[in-house]
């Protein structure tokens, strides 16, 4: 197959559901503005589960939040780049238009089920709220529908539990409520930011199974952010690996695990030996740290962000930022050394 001049354009289906391109997020800190997201590219197809992995602080959550325009205010903002979703650039929408999308076309669930629900409102009301806002339902009708949704996510006796307050529910139950809430308006995209990290293992599997079911039934695409390679391996069709505010490698799950290219991905997988046997029913393992320092946001390196920790580093790595280049169909890598197409 020929090398394409612009790998980001033609190798993938023409119009992805979500296309994040060169997204830069700036946050004001006491030390001055920093860029925790510094040129992220992501493409998510309708109906797929797309995994994003990367160690803590690499910018996963900020990327997710910028899609919904929920960056911390007033200190955070999208500096540049675009977020195309169904023919709109979310990065350029004003607050009002974004509000029409939030919880409606794109929904999000968060890591901490214990704190993500409002303790003083009944869970039924919290689920119903989006229906009132986006569908114009009366509170009564919305509540009736919320009860259906709660049933659907597996809350037993939903009719009565709908009036319960969150503190009466277990962590797994709450995450189910969060999912019901997110699914209320049948969104096209569900962003799940570490949805199971806080749950114990059996519950994790149940919640992930639920998301799989919803994907199958509603055709919703899922942006699944996690620390856990095991989860990605089991659930995602495609994966992006993030490091220091950029995507360093993007591929189908198969490709990534069988032919990892980026030195950082290698390091991650090497630290997780069981991954080779991921289909053996082994439980997924968390992402381990690899030696070296996490990049300093306040003083970003001019070249490759991973250069400090990279064994393959060449001279260009310190000077020049590597581009995200296609090495195979659907497989892109950001590296001066390994990012060269292997024909």
């Amino acid at each position: 197959m020929a090398v394409h001049a612009d790998p980001s354009a033609s190798e993938l289906p023409v119009s992805p559901l979500l296309d994040v391109s060169r997204l830069v997020v700036e946050i004001d800190t006491l030390q001055g503005p920093v860029r925790p997201v510094d040129g992220v590219d992501l493409r998510i197809e309708a109906g797929e589960i797309f995994g994003v992995v990367g160690e803590s602080g690499c910018g996963k959550s900020l990327t997710a939040l910028s899609i919904l325009g929920l960056l911390p205010r007033p200190q955070g903002r999208i500096r540049s780049g675009s977020i195309r979703f169904e023919d709109q650039d979310l990065a350029r929408l004003d607050e009002r238009d974004l509000r029409r999308i939030r919880g409606n076309r794109i929904a999000m669930i968060f890591q901490e089920p214990m704190t993500s629900l409002n303790p003083v409102l009944g869970i039924g009301d919290q689920v119903a709220e989006a229906l009132v806002i986006h569908r114009g339902l009366s509170r009564r009708d919305a509540l009736a529908q919320a009860i259906h949704l709660l049933e659907r996510v597996g809350i037993a006796d939903a009719r009565h539990r709908a009036h319960d307050f969150p503190h009466r529910l277990s962590g797994g139950m709450r995450q189910r409520v969060m999912i019901a809430m997110a699914m209320a308006c049948r969104p096209k995209l569900l962003i799940a930011d570490e949805p199971t990290t806080a749950l114990d293992v059996t519950i994790q599997a149940q919640v992930l199974d639920l998301m799989d079911d919803l994907k199958a039934e509603d055709g919703v695409a899922v942006l699944l952010i996690t620390h856990n390679f095991g989860i990605v391996a089991e659930r995602a069709a495609r994966v992006a690996v993030m490091y220091g505010g950029v995507v360093v490698e993007e591929a189908s799950t198969e490709q990534l695990f069988e032919q990892p290219r980026h030195p950082y991905t290698h390091g991650l997988l090497a630290a997780v030996p069981q991954l080779g046997r991921r289909r053996d029913g082994m439980r997924p393992h968390p992402l381990s740290e690899i030696p070296g320092m996490v990049p300093n946001l306040a003083r970003p390196a001019p070249g490759c962000a991973f250069a400090d920790r990279c064994a393959l580093r060449v001279e260009a790595c310190l000077r020049e930022r590597p581009p995200l280049a296609a090495v195979a169909p659907g497989h892109r890598v950001r590296c001066h050394v390994t990012g060269v197409s292997a024909q």
Binding site: L70, G103, A107, N118, P119, A130, I133, M178
Partner: peptide
């Protein structure tokens, strides 16, 4: 600054709500 406020915003609620 609480998580559930972020949840509420993610639902698309206007700020006054």
């Amino acid at each position: 600054g609480n998580d559930y406020i972020r949840t509420a915003r993610a639902k698309g609620l206007p700020e006054w709500l």
